[in-house]
Simulated assay, not measured.
Amino acid sequence: MFENVGWAEILVLVVAGLFILGPERLPEAARWLGSAIKQVRDYATGARDHLRKELGPEFDQLQQPLNDLRGLRDFNPKRAITRTLFSDDEPVKPNGYATTANGTPASVTPPAPNGAAPQKPLGSNERPPIDPDAT
């Protein structure tokens, strides 16, 4: 919870507390703050245990997206890009590039947009169709 708070920030909070509360009331305020944090943690732990008991194995399924988000802290963009670009899990990449089992490129026609039939290649003296509404 407070893993990003350093000693400098804690020192600033203590000095501010001394000026605001004074040296007489500061120990009592620190004690109250510590007990309040402990009570909130106890409530959170109790609620989590109660949910785990009520939901059973479904609780782990609910907790999985949170664990995935926690895993983003260790996200390495370079590794993700490398895995995406050079992974051979898919036989045909989204850009239409395909490889065979031995890793050599295979000729694959990319899928036509909107499920239309793929267009045939143009002949040597044939002009491409022009859409007057698009120009």
Rank of each mutant, 00 (worst) to 15 (best):
M1P: 09
F2M: 03
E3V: 13
N4D: 12
V5S: 01
W7S: 08
E9C: 00
I10D: 09
I10G: 05
L11V: 12
F19A: 12
F19C: 09
I20T: 10
L26W: 07
E28L: 15
E28W: 15
A30Q: 10
R31V: 11
L33C: 05
L33T: 07
L33S: 02
S35D: 10
A36S: 04
Q39W: 07
V40I: 05
D42L: 13
D42K: 12
Y43D: 13
T45Y: 08
T45S: 10
G46K: 02
G46N: 09
A47E: 04
A47M: 07
R48L: 11
H50T: 12
H50C: 09
H50G: 11
L51R: 01
L51S: 02
R52E: 04
E54D: 03
F59K: 01
D60S: 09
Q64C: 00
Q64K: 13
D68V: 09
R70N: 11
G71H: 05
R73T: 10
R73K: 14
D74V: 02
N76T: 08
N76V: 13
P77T: 02
R79S: 12
R79I: 12
A80H: 03
I81K: 03
T82Y: 07
R83T: 14
R83D: 15
T84A: 15
L85Q: 02
F86I: 03
S87D: 10
S87A: 05
D89W: 06
D89I: 09
E90T: 08
V92C: 04
K93H: 07
G96M: 06
G96H: 04
A98K: 03
T99A: 14
T99E: 15
A101M: 06
N102D: 15
P105Q: 03
A106V: 02
S107P: 00
A112T: 01
N114R: 15
N114C: 14
A116F: 11
A117V: 12
Q119R: 15
P121T: 10
L122W: 08
N125Q: 09
N125A: 06
E126Y: 09
D131G: 05
P132A: 03
P132L: 06
D133H: 10
A134P: 02
A134R: 14
T135N: 10
